[in-house]
Nucleic acid binder design. Structure first.
Lengths: 117, 117
DNA sequence: ACGTAGTATCGACATGCGTCGATGGAATGA
DNA sequence: TCATTCCATCGACGCATGTCGATACTACGT
């Protein structure tokens, strides 16, 4: 928890998954992909982690500073971060022995559009 | 599947669950509630059902017209509709022997706000 | 009263998922 | 070289969830 300098993580490309629910009836493949992404948001621990990243003034947070706030074991936090990363909602970057995570705003925007009216 | 007159369903009150993820770090109770709602969107069948309701020109669809499009058994469709209703994303109304379901746009808007940047 | 059609519920099964302790692996400092 | 710190992976456990067939229930038509 010592003072560290937060790196600025590169934001990955994000592919806009699906058309809005209200546009046209969702087909099976689109629905599966959207469900996978919303599934990443369907756990309270993951939402809190994502919120911690999104509200970080530096834009990135070290894993070591994520474990205590959510009150789960280190392996559990690592697991959830992996789920978020696989869903494209966060990015990570190794910096020495530390790993920094950052939210991907464009990915959140993409999900928002799927819910657009 | 005969021609039926679609009723206009009353839209229920929706309580704005949570502040945006980017506003302030999500606390456990808020996170649990948000996760519950996103969990309702984490299944492809439910997303397709919701999309069918949201794209219906009449604003409401009879259950009997939802079973075939999603390709699941009637009990399974009934189960998913219940999950969506418990999450406040859809409303239902009995009309004779039929039950009509409609999307709740305000609920979708609430989730969109939680993702707002 | 009786049969029929439309939904919801029940019971059961398989699978997925969250959780943790233990372990492995990489990078740093002594 | 060795110990330490940080993070990811593994293995295992219990619980939640998606799915279906069978069944119960309600409203309607005859």
């Amino acid at each position: 928890m010592a003072v560290r300098e937060a790196p600025v993580l590169v934001q990955p490309e994000v592919d806009a998954c699906c058309a809005p629910l209200q546009a046209t009836p969702l087909e099976a493949p689109e629905a599966a992909e959207l469900a996978r992404r919303f599934g990443a948001l369907s756990d309270p621990v993951r939402l809190r982690l994502l919120s911690l990243l999104a509200t970080s003034p530096d834009g990135a947070v070290c894993v070591c500073d994520l474990v205590e706030p959510v009150g789960k074991s280190q392996p559990t936090v690592s697991h959830h971060l992996k789920v978020l990363r696989d869903a494209g909602l966060v990015t990570s970057e190794k910096r020495g022995t530390n790993v920094w995570y950052a939210a991907v705003p464009a990915a959140l925007a993409g999900l928002r559009e799927a819910l657009a009216g």
